[in-house]
Design a protein around this nucleic acid. Sequence first.
DNA 1: TAGTCGTGGAG
DNA 2: TCTCCAAGACT
Length: 356
Amino acid sequence: MDKEAFQTDLVQWFQEEQRDLPWRKNNDPYKVWVSEVMLQQTRVDTVIPYYNRFLEKFPTIEAFANADEESILKIWEGLGYYSRVRNLHTAVKEVVADYGGKVPDKKEEISKLKGVGPYTAGAVLSIAYGKPIPAVDGNVMRVLSRILLITDDIARPASRKTFEIAAKGLMYHENPSYFNQALMELGALICTPTSPACLLCPVREHCQAFSKGVQDQLPVKTRKKNTKHEDLLAVVLKNKEGKILINKRPEKGLLANLWEFPNLKVVPLLDKWEILQDFLATEYSIDAVIEHAAFTEVQHVFTHLTWKIDAYEGRVMSGNIKGHESLRFVTEEELEEFAFPVSHQKIWRAYKERAR
DNA sequence: TAGTCGTGGAG
DNA sequence: TCTCCAAGACT
């Protein structure tokens, strides 16, 4: 193919057609980094308000480095993949401590930072520093698989190497930032997973898949997902002062360090209010009275897991949560300050709107 | 390597 | 309603 024509057609299209997005207003390495982490596996429209709020609250790398974990989780609340913000926090603190607050511009250094994988390293280095390093995400693999007729299975981690080599070979050294962004923008707007808009594509003359009419069969992507189902019982428990009992999740695993209403996994068909009462007594030494009917049933779908949560209402008769570090009684007003996963936000909304 | 880790949108 | 996600990284 005519590499130079491909590069200029692609980049010129990007200059004319790129979307007006908040993180494209400047190339500050910290801001580029924040946007790239937020955009991991997350749609642009979802990220925009989070990005604006984030930089309003943490306008500089130092401001974010000095934040406490509760506040960084709260600002990420609802965005998902919460380890991203904890890793970013760890990495930013390291940049402030070891690099004087300047985001490293060397691949070997930036790649050592927590949460910075090959894609994010390439994106930050090219967009913020103009380095000719590929940034291979799902868009780029899809676009290149069609342009170059690459049939490697993009679901296999090993395939990334093939696409990195391809992207490096096509790199537009006059403007690596625009080149990388243009490949992704093309994937987002034109070269979409289903029904790509080839007739609007600025590089269709260079596209092998289009010339053969096989664009709908690329990229090759296998992988089946196994969705588990879990049934949970949760309780919104009030003490005599009207405070609500909440629990901090473990620091590792699903929804790490987020807050939730006390809950337990149950065997289907055996979920009854007695189980909750017994759970509170044996697990937390709390003597409680639980309403006999759930006030809501919440269904929540994760990538590889589904929760069905029956939520009950209850009152504390006696008990002491001292010794249970993860538990806390908070007022309804205070509760709003804690970061909850969406599934438990649903429970809280249903609780406040419940018929009594 | 394959599994883990969220959420809301689109077809 | 159901499937498949969307600018990935970590273990």
